[in-house]
Amino acid sequence: MMIEGWAVRVQKVEGERRRQELIAGDALDRTLHPRAEGSDLLIPVTGSPPGTERALFEEIQVPPTLPRHEQVGGIAIMQENDVSGAEEILKGRPSTHTVLCSEGAVKGEFRTKSFTTLAGIPTTRTTISEYGHRLIIDLSLAYFSSRLATERQRIHSYIAEGEVICDMFCGVGPFPIALSDRASWILACDKNPAAIHLLRENLLANNTGNVLPMLGDASHLGELFPDTFDRVLMNLPLIAIDFLPIADQITKPGATIHLYALQEQEGEYIDQIRSIILESTITERYLRSYSAGKWHAVYDIKKD
């Protein structure tokens, strides 16, 4: 719908400079879109200062403020059991098919969560897109964090063509699928059968043929698989450090290990890493805040 308002008429080439002047003078009408008219630009303004004219503008639609939630594919996750708020989210986000309430922290052997459906389709399964890849996930069956998408691209940028990689705790496969176009092949291990099932679906969905799914306990990798690797991923933040001797065992000299950890102070695991891998270069990186006084970090460990 078009709305009549006051406008300043300027040539298009002068449009941005004049708009900044109007912003500085607190005279820009931020509720209306500027409109081109031939070689001119009509900029909406508040009031009617000299040199203005009446013009029709398209109103800027301000999206409604929705209750706090995390969006994962077509699922919105709330921390509060707020049914009315869930209905608002469902109406305000057309691509959302389900609103869930998280019933607590990640728990159990397979790092899963429980959820209650507040609105929409009662499901914990959805599909997300991440840097050109399609990932099928089920939030109640296998752990997944979309917050590491940028981290996956960082690791991708480090990989040399033809590397052999092991993901010790692969989940539904976001790291292996993101890295597969540069690696020679990738061993993707997880002890959660549901995660491996979803991984197989995701490999098919992304036409990925150089990832080998393996259902098994990473603590036995040295016994179960005879090969050694150029790079190992250890994204099991609560206890990954316990598996570092295995990662050391299955990596070649000069290999890189990416150890993910939740910590309360900078460098919390450096001494422990050095006691296990005696000759190495360690780079610690902050990823994100996890909770009050605790953050998610990654240690890039380059074996000498």
Rank of each mutant, 00 (worst) to 15 (best):
E4P: 00
W6G: 07
A7E: 05
V10D: 05
V10M: 04
R17Q: 12
R17S: 05
A24F: 05
G25H: 14
L28F: 10
R30H: 12
T31I: 01
P34V: 06
G38H: 09
S39P: 06
D40T: 05
T46F: 01
R54D: 01
E58P: 00
E58L: 11
E59A: 13
I60A: 03
Q61P: 00
P67I: 02
H69C: 09
I77C: 08
M78H: 09
M78F: 05
M78S: 10
N81R: 15
V83L: 10
G85Y: 00
E87F: 02
E88G: 00
I89G: 08
K91Y: 03
P94Q: 08
P94Y: 03
P94G: 07
T98F: 06
G104P: 11
R111Y: 04
L118D: 07
A119Y: 03
P122E: 13
T123C: 11
T124R: 10
T126S: 15
I128A: 06
E130T: 04
Y131T: 08
Y131V: 06
R134F: 09
R134G: 03
I137Q: 03
S140N: 13
L141M: 14
L141T: 12
S145I: 13
S146P: 15
T150P: 00
E151Q: 12
R152H: 09
R152W: 06
Q153I: 03
H156N: 11
D167S: 08
G171S: 07
G171Q: 02
G171Y: 03
I177W: 04
A178S: 15
S180E: 05
R182S: 04
L187A: 01
D190I: 04
N192R: 11
N192H: 14
A194Q: 14
L199Q: 08
L199V: 11
L199A: 03
N207V: 10
G209D: 14
M214R: 14
L215A: 10
D217N: 15
A218D: 06
E223Q: 14
E223N: 14
L224N: 12
T228W: 03
F229R: 01
V232H: 01
M234K: 03
L236P: 12
P237D: 08
A240Q: 02
D242V: 06
I246G: 06
I246D: 09
I246W: 02
A247S: 09
I250S: 09
L259S: 07
A261K: 00
A261V: 02
A261C: 08
E264C: 11
Q265T: 13
Q265F: 09
E268R: 09
Y269W: 13
Y269I: 01
Q272I: 13
R274H: 09
S275D: 12
E279D: 15
E279V: 11
S280F: 03
Y286F: 15
R288G: 02
Y290K: 09
Y290V: 01
G293Q: 02
H296M: 11
